[in-house]
Amino acid sequence: MNLEILTPDKKVFEGEVTAVTVPGTSGSFQILKDHAPIISTLEDGPVIVKEATGENIYNIKGGVVEVLDNKIIVLAEAIVA
């Protein structure tokens, strides 16, 4: 799957991933290969990115996620250090 994490001022991440966990408004959920199309709002919290080489965590300040045809776009208000 291809993942992009974007903020209003920069592209934070782009690459191939095996799984992504996002902080949805109704609770966190994981996106795997061939996930059904979805658009969801996101709360403040961690976006956990699993790649073949390991795992990275990006703490976001709210946003939106879109999943369509194994392409995931996370539009975050900001990344919290």
Rank of each mutant, 00 (worst) to 15 (best):
M1D: 02
N2R: 14
L3N: 04
E4Y: 13
L6G: 00
T7F: 00
P8Y: 00
P8A: 06
K11V: 14
V12T: 01
F13N: 03
E14V: 12
E14H: 14
V17A: 06
V17W: 03
A19R: 07
A19W: 04
T21K: 00
G27H: 08
I31W: 02
I31A: 07
L32M: 12
H35L: 00
H35C: 00
A36F: 13
I38M: 10
I38W: 07
I38Y: 04
I39V: 12
I39P: 04
I39N: 01
S40H: 04
L42Y: 03
L42G: 00
E43Y: 10
P46E: 08
P46Q: 07
V47S: 07
I48Y: 08
K50D: 09
E51V: 10
E51P: 10
E51W: 11
A52K: 15
T53P: 04
T53H: 10
G54D: 05
E55W: 10
N56L: 14
I57G: 07
Y58H: 12
I60W: 07
K61Y: 07
K61R: 14
G62F: 08
V64G: 05
V64H: 08
E66Y: 11
E66A: 14
E66R: 12
I72K: 03
L75Q: 11
A76Q: 03
E77I: 02
E77L: 11
A78K: 01
I79D: 00
V80G: 06
V80P: 08
V80A: 10
A81I: 12
